[in-house]
Each structure stands twice: as structure tokens, then as C-alpha cells.
Simulated assay, not measured.
Amino acid sequence: MITFALAVLFLIITPGPGVLSAAGVGAGFGFRTGLRYVGGLFIGTNIVALCVVTGLSAVLLAVPAVRWILMGASLIYLIYLAARIAFAGSKIGFAATRSVPGIGAGILLQVINPKAYVVNTSLFTGFPFAPENLTLELITKALILNAIWIPIHLAWLWLGVSLNRLNLSAPTQRKINFAMAASLLAAVGLAVYAGTTHS
């Protein structure tokens, strides 16, 4: 169980679309909006976990057309998020927009986020510790996963909000924007690589 918890920590704490976008929303729109967005990410990651546990994701992703549609939607959305961050000007976070990312945006990102499927598949199909009681193992894994997932994503949100409060110079803020955008684009590159090597 400790091995599983450590695997959760290392798989989730590494920068991916979820945590990076949580920081970006916090920086661009503040803690309250960011909290709603993280709430959406939380719901979305648990939807993905349910799809993995029930085998639905394996069935859907076995169809090449579905896999490529999911990959395409994910890439488009991640590039969109990266562009909004990169072109936010001297303000850290997302470019000005009439709509703010909320619960629905968080759910959408996780449902089309390749990393969410990889992480959940690795965690729920590996690291067995109660093979005699699969139901207990799955419930325990879900509880451990969420107990680690929540503070990590709240920490990234807080980081984004804190960056916005530092009153940094415009050039420094622009560099942070581009660094955050580049990180998201790196996630896009990894998604493309994973998709092409497993197709």
C-alpha cells in the first residue's frame, strides 16, 4: 500500500496538463475561480478512474477512430490553453476573456487528458495489495489517490495565485507565461508520442 501511495505521489506531482492548467487558472483568475476549476478536474479524474476500473476506457480506446478523436481533442485543447497563457501579455496566466474556466472546463480537460488515463490505468491495474478482495483494493486505491491528488492540485493552484500576487516586472511575467505554455506544449508532445507508439 505504501508503494502504491508513493507511485500516486510521483505520478501526480509531475507537471502535466491538470496541475499546470490549475496554476494558470489561479494566476489568471484568482483562487475562487481556480477552486471551481480544480473541482472540475477532481470530478473529471474520478470519471476517468471509473472508466478505467470498469474497463470502459479499454473498450473505447481499442477502437482506433475513438482513440484518434480523443487524441485530437486533447491536442487542440492543450494547444488552446498554452496559447492563452503564452499570449497573456505582461500578466501572468490566461489572456483576457469574457468566460472564465470553471467546473465544466476542468472536467473536459481530464476526460480528454491522455495523462489521466495513463496514470489511472497504471495505478488501478498495478500495485496489487489485496488480491483476495478486489473491491476493497479498488476502494482503498481510490481513497488514497484522491487524498494525495487534492492537496497536490490545491498546491499548484496556490502557486499560480501566489505568482500573480508577486507584482513581478512585465518581462519576468512574460517569461513565466511562456514557460508555463512551453510546459503544456511539452505535454502535447508527449501525448502525440504516446499516441503514435501505442497505436
Rank of each mutant, 00 (worst) to 15 (best):
W156Y: 15
Q173H: 02
I103E: 08
A142V: 04
K115W: 02
A88W: 07
L35E: 13
G44V: 14
I85M: 06
A5Y: 03
L75Y: 08
I150C: 10
L154G: 05
A5F: 04
K175R: 00
L61Q: 13
R36W: 06
T197W: 03
V25K: 01
I152Y: 05
F124S: 06
R98Y: 11
A170C: 01
G39L: 14
V52N: 03
A116S: 14
A194F: 11
A155M: 06
A147Q: 11
I79G: 06
I79K: 01
Q110G: 11
Y80E: 09
S57R: 15
A116G: 10
S90Y: 00
H153T: 01
S90K: 04
K175C: 00
T197M: 08
A86D: 00
L50S: 15
S74G: 15
A27M: 05
R67K: 14
S90Q: 07
S162F: 14
M1V: 11
A86P: 00
T121H: 05
G24F: 00
A96S: 13
F127W: 10
F10D: 02
A5H: 03
S99M: 03
I92A: 10
S99R: 09
I43S: 13
G106A: 07
V100A: 12
R174V: 05
A58V: 10
L154Y: 04
T3N: 06
A142Q: 03
P17D: 00
N133V: 04
Y117L: 02
T121P: 02
V188G: 02
L138Y: 11
I76R: 10
A147C: 12
L159K: 09
P17H: 00
A62K: 11
M1W: 10
G102V: 07
L75A: 10
I92C: 05
A7T: 03
V52W: 07
P131D: 10
G189L: 09
A82T: 02
V59C: 13
I13W: 00
A58P: 07
T33S: 14
A181H: 05
A191M: 12
R67H: 13
L75D: 06
T172L: 06
L159Q: 10
S57W: 15
I107R: 12
L123M: 10
R165D: 12
N164K: 13
A65V: 15
G26H: 09
V52G: 02
